[in-house]
Design a protein around this nucleic acid. Structure first.
Lengths: 234, 234
DNA sequence: CGACCGTTTGAGATCCTTCAATACCAGTGG
DNA sequence: CCACTGGTATTGAAGGATCTCAAACGGTCG
């Protein structure tokens, strides 16, 4: 996990994240000192690609979408970060993607300058951030395989299994994002996503109690469909 | 840049890489001490996805392809690392992609255990590796946009511009990889790559003196075709 | 209820793939 | 020197997966 957020609850010094515990009491206190909480409602923007990256964010609650745009408006969603994920971590000057709230979200915000000083002064933090970024890179490379070489059904199956693994609520999945978001994540259109889900429902691979939730009915066949590497190894 | 390699030439203590200079003489000497050189001929494998990641590599010369496979053999190439790039950097246990030589290559190999100890003992190294990995992540995210949302022509234009930027030989580009490699990098077939290149030649966008080299004739139109983000910002 | 927004479904068009043949190029042996 | 061979690239024709355009459906909220 990549948790870093510190508590802003009544007991300010209480540390919730694995990283903070790893860093020791003093460093954790520093993190609390430089952080602040921000909230966004569904659809609201947190930051845009090209903005000066003045802050690093950690998701405290809710789900966001990260995306890049082409000049004509075509959109590629690169991820749906939720609780515990870090945003805007790249060490240089500008955000390289935009971030919007999918659900209502709360974020823990760290000013970049303070954050960078912390990296220098806290032993182990740089290595921790490296590990977090490496894991993101690994996921991005899995996504390259998905986008470049998988069919629509394989993409959707991979996506559902990825969500199931992340939510670890067994086979019950929340789909807070819209069909269009899913399409822009998988390199498909809204219609193809919808048709593929309908087809999977017809084939008894899954149930769609509502349009924003799903239940996996046949994980084995879904995994076969997804091919290797929906996040897991081959 | 992400250079780290140390010299194995007659003067063993001489340090060639930017990182080593940044790290100081003593750390650089440590790097030399744990490294060894390996060579591979075209088509030979350096390591495979799923192998224990016993070593980290830096490319000293030549070009490689990194790729992931689906069970049925479909392939997605994730990059063509060349001189100065690091391979197998992920901090955990297994390689997450395979690496093969495209041209003849020489690599500088660091045993992972020693490398990890070095990270702990050399201040600044972890942060440096974080920066390197962040940059790879940024490129991977650009590639997500390309694979998910660009057309064949846009993909090929982006690819050519990316190579031109990397080689910085102006508008002369070496294409050491085969058409099939380009296709598997761009999520296209061999035939589509070939047709697209032919079409660009017909449109006077580029010249193809041989099948493994190209000259950009109209960078402006190519950049317009590539859309934003072929590596550069929008 | 009725408007709105997102999803689903349908029909036709298109880009890219697939399958197949031809061209090209370098190396080898006659 | 030239034919032959193997590998890669190019070109052609046909098919198909996905997209586009368009309409119908369904839930939510005032």
């Amino acid at each position: 996990m990549q948790q870093l957020a510190v508590s802003h609850s009544p007991t300010p010094a209480r540390v919730e994240s694995a990283v903070c515990r790893g860093l020791g009491r003093q460093a954790a206190t520093h993190l609390v000192a430089i952080s602040s909480l921000v909230a966004r409602r569904p659809g609201e923007v947190v930051f845009c690609e090209g903005d000066d990256a003045e802050c690093v964010y950690e998701v405290v609650s809710g789900t966001l979408r990260l995306y890049k745009l082409l000049p004509d408006g075509r959109r590629q969603i690169t991820g749906f970060p939720s609780t515990g994920h870090l945003l805007g971590l790249a060490p240089d000057g500008e955000h390289v993607y935009s971030a919007e709230a999918v659900t209502a979200v709360t974020l823990c915000r760290y000013p970049r300058a303070s954050f960078n000083r912390l990296i220098d002064s806290v032993p182990g933090l740089a290595r921790r951030l490296w590990a977090v970024t490496s894991d993101e890179l690994r996921l991005a490379q899995d996504q390259l395989l998905l986008l470049g070489r998988k069919t629509a059904s394989e993409k959707v199956a991979s996506f559902l299994l990825m969500l199931a693994d992340a939510n670890d609520d067994g086979d019950e999945i929340a789909l807070p994002m819209r069909r269009g978001d899913i399409g822009d994540y998988l390199g498909l259109t809204i219609e193809t996503v919808s048709r593929t889900l309908t087809e999977m429902k017809r084939d008894r691979l899954l149930a769609l109690p509502t349009s924003d939730s799903a239940r996996l009915l046949d994980r084995e066949r879904l995994e076969a469909l997804a091919g290797g590497a929906h996040g897991a190894s081959v």
